[in-house]
């Protein structure tokens, strides 16, 4: 019974959201507000239950002094973040700057990790992957052509972003090649995006005609 009720509610919500195709309307607005409200509430609860509470429970009851101290520091930083809340503008507007300390800490750690991982896990391996044999006896014609396109594509695309020299003559040709390669990449990305959006539509329509209307088995 509950399952049937759930399917009918989901079908109503789906149709209500799709009704936006014919213009903004009160039913769409109603469902949009339900979505935003329930998502936010659910998110807060799960974050508390899955992350905040287990960490606090473990950190405050542990016998490990290091873990205990770091938990207290984390809690302190968490409290400082609360000064960012909108309500603090009314209670103590001259203290909102305090929230910058935890934000600066998170930004610093994040940037440090991102720089190292980008160089080690992205730039180096990707550069190495462009060192390809352009003419190899055992390689097929398709592989050779693919390697040549890849190397030319990388070099010309990189050169496209080199703005310190006037691009004319041969250099203009390289820039043009780079631009064409970038445009083809955008085209492929756009094609994949269309596929993604159509997939979402298929998912919803499949739900309507299968689970709700039972037209598909």
């Amino acid at each position: 019974m509950m399952e049937i009720l759930g399917i009918w509610i989901a079908a109503f919500l789906t149709l209500a959201i799709l009704s936006f195709l014919f213009g903004d309307n009160p039913v769409y607005k109603f469902v949009e507000h339900i979505f935003v409200g329930s998502s936010a509430a659910f998110g807060v609860l799960v974050a508390f239950n899955q992350a905040v509470w287990p960490f606090l429970q473990e950190g405050l009851t542990t016998t490990d002094t290091f873990l205990k101290v770091t938990t207290y520091i984390a809690m302190f930083m968490g409290v400082l973040t609360l000064f960012r809340l909108e309500i603090m503008n009314f209670i103590a507007p001259n203290l909102t700057w305090i929230s910058r300390f935890p934000i600066a800490f998170v930004t610093g750690v994040g940037t440090g990790i991102a720089i190292v991982t980008s160089i080690h896990g992205f730039i180096f391996p990707q550069t190495v992957a462009t060192f390809l044999p352009l003419f190899e006896n055992r390689a097929s014609a398709v592989e050779i052509a693919s390697n040549i396109i890849l190397v030319i594509g990388v070099l010309s695309s990189l050169y496209y972003f080199y703005f310190s020299m006037e691009q004319k003559g041969v250099l203009k040709g390289i820039t043009r090649t780079g631009m064409v390669i970038i445009m083809i990449t955008f085209g492929a990305a756009f094609g994949y995006t269309v596929m993604a959006r159509v997939s979402l539509l298929i998912g919803r329509i499949y739900f309507l005609i299968s689970d709700w209307l039972h037209l598909v088995r």
Partner: peptide, 24 residues
């Protein structure tokens, strides 16, 4: 998801990942 698949082809081509399932 298909939207982010093109950028993951680079990781597949470089051998950083062994396989890739792109979108539907």
């Amino acid at each position: 998801t298909a939207v982010i698949t093109p950028e993951f082809f680079a990781f597949y081509q470089s051998g950083q990942i062994e396989g890739l399932l792109g979108g539907l």
